[in-house]
Design a protein around this nucleic acid. Structure first.
Length: 583
RNA sequence: GCGCUCGUAGUGAAGUUGGCCUAUCACGCCUCCCUGUCACGGAGGAGAUCGCCAGUUCGAAUCUGGUCGAGCGCGCCA
């Protein structure tokens, strides 16, 4: 039976059985108290010496022993109540005790109170870590979260379809997890990075609306907001849709409801704004801006067109951000922001502070009164503020000020944990320049529809081609990526052809999908949400690993199960695999 | 692959300008005492070659080099 406060209160005077773990034991010599814990909470057990054999057994109890007791529920006497726990007004006078299993001395801290053990140990002993009420709470919230999603999708006529886990390797994108084939020596399955091709095939297969809480696998290094290995996406697709706006309007109520009804937070925008990629880059210097705060990048290039200040007039672009209250920053604080700007490639960090009606700055002397007036007007700076400048190539200015904007928001605590700012970023460039490899590459998703179709692909400046693609951003996290899909073989060949991939190559890699497109493929569009990340942000967790019961550590190791691990030579032989070190 | 930070009893921390360190504290563990506590209290005890290897030095937890591991960030993540 469960230790639910409201249930046990109903049992006062009656004999009950409860089972759980010893949370704490307080041995007073003549009386022993034990706080018994299960997933629902704590109940105080009282052991009296009158029942001698039970009392003797109770003396051996230690933390995390798993036990069952029978006893009478009674109200505690006056002054003996504990207001800190839900069952604090009652206790169980134990008549019988059974110890299911003892516990060794604990290798990690198993209570929410006090200092926590480091994560490596928590993951190694995850089964103990999960007993903590806060972890139990997360597991339950995750279940509720998934149910919330399924109900919404179900209500909107989406059909849940499972797609294969053993799938095909995809050449671009993240590294694959490969699975050798026993029946086909030398050939490999790959675990899907996303069910992208399958869901498009479902569209061709006549499924009008598909969704899946899909396990996805990527062999890429993790981050605080990104799992190594396996993670989950809410993957969805809609047929007969050739306008991304239809998808956006369909799914955004789900995310809004998750933010408000599920997480109890406040939306910054009731109507979710749309920005083009170019707009967010110009305004916020990043393609996933946190809009819980403003601090937009102000373009001063035109206003300072004729300035004598060499740093500004020699630059392609001059922008500024106005930091409210920024005049209070100390010299050393400004130095550390300057350091950040340098790390992002800026030469330095010019600034103005507004103190007691005056503008103070190392660079003020290079600017005319009119220029200062213009800067003040455009940035909206008032007394107590500071204005920081970036002057360089346009994309570098955006990047540097975008990073500074986030750093200032952190410094001034502008990220309200109770608010959720959602936005859509649309019209991503189809291609971008890969500076490292000095070549053109896909911007996001090669399977999206180029705006303007086949004709649009023929322009000379391939970087100007726009993909009908959209991301949803929540509080500075990219939580969703989607697009209107390409369902034309001709365009698919051309899209890859621009990057130098041959027709044969495309056929080889995407044959299944290409073939399907020859047989009356409907237009379709969809998206995929990174639901671990959404869950993490909505619960204000600072580490995504606790969003799953059994995550791997940063090196992709499951410390509890000790995976990955070596396999026997027999297994290798059966798979026609030979392991050798490659230099 | 790179950068930053970290690694001290079972757990969490202190000590890190070399020597008062024979390494401190709290929790936990063991023994004993205690009939109303609630993260009970009291007395006593065990438990650490300071991640590992090498070097500098009369002397290293402390300095240097290397190495292993972790976290965060960059690269990467169509």
């Amino acid at each position: 039976m469960r230790i639910l406060a409201q249930e046990l209160v109903k049992e006062i005077g009656k004999k009950v059985q409860v089972m759980g773990w010893v949370n704490t034991r307080r041995d007073h010599g003549g009386v022993i108290f034990v706080d018994l814990r299960d997933h629902s909470g704590l109940i105080q057990l009282v052991f009296n010496p009158e029942t001698a054999d039970v009392f003797a057994l109770a003396e051996s109890l230690r933390d995390e022993f798993c036990i069952s007791v029978c006893g009478i529920v009674r109200e505690r006497g006056a002054g003996l109540e504990n207001p800190n726990i839900a069952t604090g007004k009652i206790e169980i006078v134990v008549e019988d005790l059974e110890i299911f299993t003892k516990s060794e001395a604990l290798p990690i801290a198993t209570r929410d109170e006090g200092q926590q053990s480091n994560e490596e140990l928590r993951l190694k002993y995850r089964f103990l870590d999960l007993r903590r009420p806060s972890m139990q709470s997360i597991l339950r919230k995750r279940a509720k979260f998934n149910k919330f999603i399924r109900e919404f999708m179900d209500d909107h006529d989406f059909v849940e379809v499972a797609t294969p886990i053993l799938a095909n390797s995809s050449p671009e994108g993240a590294r694959d997890f490969l699975v050798p084939s026993r029946l086909h020596p030398g050939k490999f399955y790959a675990l899907p990075q996303a069910p992208q091709q399958f869901k498009q095939l479902l569209m061709v297969g006549g499924v009008p609306r598909y969704y899946q809480i899909a396990p996805c696998f990527r062999d890429e290094d993790p981050r605080a907001d990104r799992f190594y290995g396996d993670f989950y996406q809410l993957d969805l697709e809609m047929s007969f849709v050739n306008d991304g706006e239809v998808v956006r309007e369909t799914v955004e109520p789900l995310i809004k409801d998750l933010a408000t009804d599920f997480a109890g937070k406040e939306l910054v925008f009731d109507k979710i704004p749309r920005f083009t990629y170019t707009e967010v880059m110009e305004k916020y210097g990043i393609d996933k801006p946190d809009l819980r705060y403003g601090m937009e990048l102000i373009d001063l290039t035109a206003a300072l067109d004729k300035t004598e200040f060499a740093v500004f007039n020699s630059a392609e672009c001059v922008k500024a951000i106005c930091v409210k209250g920024g005049a209070s920053l100390s010299r050393s604080q400004i130095d550390s922001f300057t350091e950040l700007a340098r790390k992002e490639g800026a030469g330095g960090l010019a600034y103005l502070t507004y103190v007691d009606g005056e503008i103070k700055s190392p660079i003020a002397k290079f600017l005319t009164e009119n220029e200062l007036k213009e800067i003040t007007k455009l940035t909206g700076a008032t007394d107590g503020d500071a204005v920081f400048f970036g002057a360089d190539a346009r994309d570098k200015v955006n990047k540097v000020l975008g990073k500074l904007r986030i750093a200032f928001a952190d410094h001034f605590n502008l990220k309200d944990p109770n608010k959720v700012a959602l936005l859509w970023v649309i019209d991503f460039p189809f291609y971008e320049w890969d500076e490292k490899n000095k070549r053109l590459d896909f911007g996001h998703n090669p399977f999206s529809w180029p705006k303007g179709g086949l004709e649009a692909l023929n322009v000379d400046d391939k970087l100007s081609i726009i993909a009908d693609q959209y991301d949803m951003v929540m509080n500075g996290y990219e939580i969703c990526s989607g697009g209107v899909r390409n369902y034309s073989p001709e365009i698919l060949y051309q899209v890859f052809g621009i990057l130098g991939y041959s027709k044969t190559y495309v056929e080889e890699k995407f044959g299944g999908m290409l073939n399907a497109f020859k047989f009356g493929a409907p237009p379709h569009a969809g998206c995929a949400f990174g639901i671990d990340r959404i869950f993490m942000e909505l619960l204000n967790m600072d580490n995504i690993r606790d969003a799953l019961a059994f995550p791997k550590n940063g090196s992709g190791i499951d410390l509890m199960m000790n995976s990955p691990s070596t396999i026997t030579n027999e297994q290798l032989r059966e798979l026609s695999i030979k392991v050798q070190e490659v230099k």
